[in-house]
Amino acid sequence: MLAAFVGGLIIAGALIWAVQFGMKVRDRELPRPRPDEQPHLPDGGAVRESREIREPDEVPHAVGKERLMPYELHKSSTRTGKDQHRRRWLPGSSGSFGGGGVGHH
């Protein structure tokens, strides 16, 4: 019984020390930003998301040269796809791995 009481006192003392240590650390941190320093929406309103289908943009071949220079490469490895029609999932078609569906009818 005495061991349980001493163990409880040790745990309570450790918890009190942890809280005091956390308060000291928090006092050393920078103050929280004031309401006027908080981020706000741009004047034009919220920025809208744009969706597009991308396709790979292959590296061009170096015709008549030994190698391509960096300024001859495209800025991105993908480009806007020619077909922007988004293919939708159809019920009954194969969906997820292990979905157990029967596939196309």
Rank of each mutant, 00 (worst) to 15 (best):
M23T: 04
G81C: 09
F21G: 01
G92M: 12
D57V: 02
A12P: 00
H61M: 11
H40Q: 11
G7H: 08
A18P: 01
E72K: 09
R34L: 15
V47N: 02
V19R: 14
E55S: 06
P91Y: 01
R54K: 09
Q84S: 07
L68N: 02
E29G: 01
L68G: 01
P56C: 02
F21Y: 10
A4V: 02
P31A: 09
P56L: 11
L90G: 00
S77Q: 11
E55H: 02
G8Y: 02
D43T: 03
V47L: 08
L15R: 02
G22L: 12
G92H: 08
L15T: 10
I53K: 13
H74T: 09
V102I: 07
P39Y: 11
R79H: 08
P42L: 05
P56E: 05
H105G: 13
F21H: 10
G92A: 09
L90C: 02
V6M: 10
R28I: 05
I53D: 04
M69A: 15
Q38I: 00
P33L: 14
D36F: 03
P91Q: 06
V25A: 08
E66G: 14
L73Y: 01
R32T: 12
G101S: 08
Q84R: 08
I11L: 15
D27L: 10
I10L: 15
R26V: 02
L2W: 03
V6C: 05
Y71V: 05
Q20F: 06
K75I: 09
S93T: 08
V59H: 06
H74L: 05
M23L: 12
P33E: 13
R34F: 04
D43L: 14
Y71S: 12
G8A: 14
P33Q: 13
G99E: 09
M1Y: 05
E72I: 08
L15D: 00
L15A: 13
R51A: 08
K24H: 07
E66Y: 06
D43F: 10
E49T: 10
A14G: 14
I11H: 01
G100V: 08
H40L: 04
H40C: 00
M69L: 14
L90D: 07
L15M: 04
S94G: 03
G99K: 01
A62N: 10
P33S: 09
Q38M: 15
G44A: 10
I11G: 06
R67I: 00
I11V: 15
E66I: 07
T80W: 02
L73T: 11
K24N: 12
R26C: 00
K75E: 15
S50C: 04
E37W: 00
P33V: 14
V102Q: 13
E66C: 03
T78L: 05
P35K: 13
A62H: 11
L9Q: 12
A46R: 15
L30W: 10
R32E: 09
D83M: 06
P39W: 11
R48N: 03
F5N: 02
K82P: 06
V63K: 08
P35F: 10
R34M: 01
W89T: 07
P70Q: 11
L41P: 00
I16K: 00
E52H: 13
R86H: 11
G7W: 05
V6A: 09
G99M: 00
E37P: 03
